[in-house]
Simulated scan of single mutants.
Amino acid sequence: MAVGTDLTSDVRRRTSDSLKIGIAGAGLLGRLLAWKLLRQGHRVSIFDRGSRAAELSAAKVAASMLAPYSEVVSAERCVFDWGRMALSWWPQELAALKELTGEHIDFAVEGSVVVAHELDKSSLNHFEQQLRSKVADCEHNIERIDQRRLADLEPELAERYRGGLFLAEEGYLDNGALLSALEMAISQLGGEWHEYSDVQYVEAGKIVLENQTYEFDWAIDSRGMGAKNQLPNLRGVRGEVLWIHAPEVNLRRPVRLMHPRYKLYISPRSGNRYVIGATEIESESMKPVTVRSSLELMSALYSVHSGFAEATLLHAYAHCRPAMPNNLPEIKCTKGVLVVNGLYRHGYLLSPYVVETALEMLE
């Protein structure tokens, strides 16, 4: 399967052979597909019910961790295999985006750390057992660490924890910067934006709005929850995240806290900013973050590092992530229409596999 290539050799001149492609949904998948198709020389129009800022997209409400080991414990093995592909795919695509737009996107694969309080060590042990049984062939990337090794990796955690797990092949990227850079790149490559366009349905070669129909060689439906009228098995899984500015906290890697009731994760950003999350609720509610969720997240956060006590809450976001019954992405291609959906909670981890598979189907 092909992955990212050098931008200067990848962009083709548009010829009479180039395709006219319409994309419904300008979330993560829609933007990545538009970016790749434009570089192949196709003519692309992108439709979204929100603006280019992606304020209505589930991709905006994410910690965007690249964590194939952590996620496979509660997922199919293919999530792990497809997720590992992302670790080599993203650096090439981010480099190409920077070459075109000049925008830097924080990205690192320096591993992640999993810890637990002494009373919750059984949760950590159970997590480790499940993980090793799922990925026995990659067990060398799962390291049980003591307090000294933890101090080498994340010194500020060693003051509170005696050890944990180090998962070497995990990382993160800055989703906000990525979505912004993709918008810029699509515009620079000649992509046509249709903002505030409420797509009614997508069919072979057509994207239908309330009062207008657009015709294309191919129509791509990447609307997430917006496609529920055409994907009856699609469901929403509510997720909530907090954005924190914590000048007294210095963590380099994503951190997960094992807990009997939920698993807190902390994903770093530049400038002592962190994205905090844990909630995964079988609900399609789009209400703002609840008081209960906020209290649970912030109390658990303080238990990880006392420096979070003086942190500033920048944002509290909630959204519904689209999921199929098996929690795996759906990629369906028939003549004139391509459907990509169902990234569930694995958006930034699985989107490289989904995008490359979809492009192969189009070819």
Rank of each mutant, 00 (worst) to 15 (best):
V73P: 08
T101I: 07
E296L: 08
S283I: 04
E128T: 07
L313S: 00
V202D: 04
R238I: 06
V109W: 09
T15K: 08
K36H: 12
A323I: 01
G342M: 07
L350R: 03
E143N: 14
I142L: 00
I23Q: 01
E210K: 14
K335P: 11
R144T: 15
D174L: 04
V355N: 06
L182M: 10
L19Q: 14
N341D: 15
P232A: 12
H117T: 02
I105S: 06
H194I: 12
S303G: 11
E71M: 12
A67K: 00
S222L: 04
A246G: 08
S285N: 02
D106F: 00
D152K: 08
E363F: 06
E99P: 02
T101L: 01
T312H: 09
A34R: 02
W243Q: 13
P268K: 08
R12H: 14
L343R: 08
L56W: 07
W218V: 15
L301T: 00
Y201N: 08
E363H: 10
H315Q: 15
E195G: 05
D48P: 00
G205S: 07
L32Q: 13
P268S: 12
S283Y: 08
A358D: 07
R235L: 04
T15I: 10
D10L: 13
A227D: 06
E76T: 01
T279I: 00
L295F: 02
S299K: 01
G41M: 01
R13I: 11
K121Q: 15
F216I: 05
V291M: 13
V109C: 12
L32G: 03
T5H: 13
L165E: 04
L234W: 05
L157V: 07
T8C: 11
T312W: 05
V304F: 02
